[in-house]
C-alpha cells in the first residue's frame, strides 16, 4: 500500500493511438496503471475505453484494418516493439470478455485448462491441481466440482463468466483485463464477480472497463475517464468520484450525460 506512488508501475501507455482504417479511435493516450491495483476505465459508449483495453494485450490488431501507434510498456518492455510475439503478450496479459464465452465444444475441465495446454505437456495431476486452484480462486469450485465433465455451456451466465475467469487465471497471467465483465449478468452474479475482483487484486494487476459508475467506485483503486477517444482524467478513485478535476468528468459521473 505504501508504494502506491511507485513510478515503476505495471502498465504504462505512451501517446497511444488506435485506428480502425483511417478513423482514429484513441487520440494519444498516456497513462500509467499500477501493479496489483484495480484501474477502472469509465466513459460513455464509443469513448474508446474498450479499444484502449484491447490495445493492452494486442487484441485490437486482430480486427480487420485495425492498427496502433505509440507504446504500451508492461514491466519495462514495450509490447509493441518489433520482435515481441503477441501470443506471448496475451499469455501474460489475460482477458475476460463482456459476454461469457466458454468454449462450447469443451467440458468445464477442458475450458479451464484450454490455455494451459497450449504451453506444452502437463501431467494429469498438474492439470487437476490447476483446475481446482483456479476454480476455487474464481469461486466456482463448490458449484461445479461434481460436474467437471459437463459442457461449459451448461452453466448459468454468472457461472460461465467465473469459468472464463478461472480459464484466464489458469495460464498464470500478471495482468487481467476485464471488459465489462458483469454487464450481461444479474445483480447476484455481479456481486460475486466484484467480490472476486477484490480478492484477485492482491495477486494481479487488473484493468476493468465498466459502464457502471457504482461498480467503478466499489472495485477500483484508480479510475480513468475516457471521452471521444481521449483520456480526460485519471486519478485515484476516491478523489475522482468526490472531487473530479474536469467539468466533463463531473458531468459524466453525476449522470448529466452518457
Amino acid at each position: 500500500m505504501s508504494n502506491s506512488n511507485d513510478i515503476n508501475s505495471g502498465i504504462v501507455a505512451q501517446d497511444l493511438k488506435a485506428f480502425f482504417g483511417n478513423i482514429e479511435v484513441l487520440k494519444g493516450i498516456s497513462v500509467s496503471m499500477q501493479k496489483k491495483k484495480v484501474t477502472a476505465l469509465i466513459g460513455p459508449s464509443g469513448c474508446g475505453k474498450t479499444t484502449f483495453l484491447r490495445t493492452l494485450n494486442r487484441m485490437h490488431e486482430l480486427a480487420r484494418n485495425a492498427s496502433i501507434k505509440g507504446k504500451v510498456i508492461v514491466d519495462g518492455t514495450d509490447i509493441y516493439s518489433p520482435g515481441i510475439d503477441p501470443v506471448l503478450v496475451r499469455r501474460k496479459i489475460g482477458m475476460v470478455f463482456q459476454k461469457p464465452n466458454p468454449f462450447p465444444t469443451m467440458t468445464i475441465y477442458e475450458n479451464v485448462v484450454a490455455g494451459l495446454k497450449l504451453t506444452g505437456r502437463h501431467s494429469r495431476k498438474e492439470l487437476d491441481e490447476v483446475v481446482e486452484r483456479t476454480l476455487v480462486q474464481a469461486a466456482l469450485w463448490d458449484e461445479v466440482k461434481d460436474s467437471l465433465r459437463k459442457s461449459g455451456a451448461s452453466l448459468s451466465g454468472g457461472q460461465q463468466q467465473r469459468l472464463c475467469i478461472a480459464r484466464t487465471l489458469a495460464v498464470n497471467p500478471e495482468v487481467i483485463l476485464m471488459d465489462e465483465p458483469a454487464s450481461a449478468l444479474d445483480p447476484i452474479s455481479t456481486a460475486k464477480i466484484e467480490e472476486l475482483i477484490f480478492q484477485l487484486k492482491d495477486t494481479y494487476t487488473i484493468v476493468i472497463v465498466t459502464h457502471n459508475m457504482q461498480q467503478a467506485a466499489r472495485v477500483s483503486d484508480f479510475t480513468a475517464f475516457f471521452y471521444l477517444g481521449e483520456l480526460i482524467e485519471f486519478n485515484n478513485t476516491r478523489s475522482m468520484f468526490t472531487r473530479p478535476q474536469k467539468k466533463q468528468t463531473e458531468d459524466y459521473i453525476t449522470g448529466r450525460f452518457g
Binding site: M59, L62, G94, P102, F103, P104, A114, L118, V171
Partner: peptide, 13 residues
C-alpha cells in the same frame, strides 16, 4: 468471434 477471441486471449496462435 467471441469464441476465437477468447482463445487468442489465452495466448493461442
Amino acid at each position: 468471434v467471441p469464441l476465437t477471441e477468447g482463445m487468442y486471449a489465452l495466448g493461442a496462435t
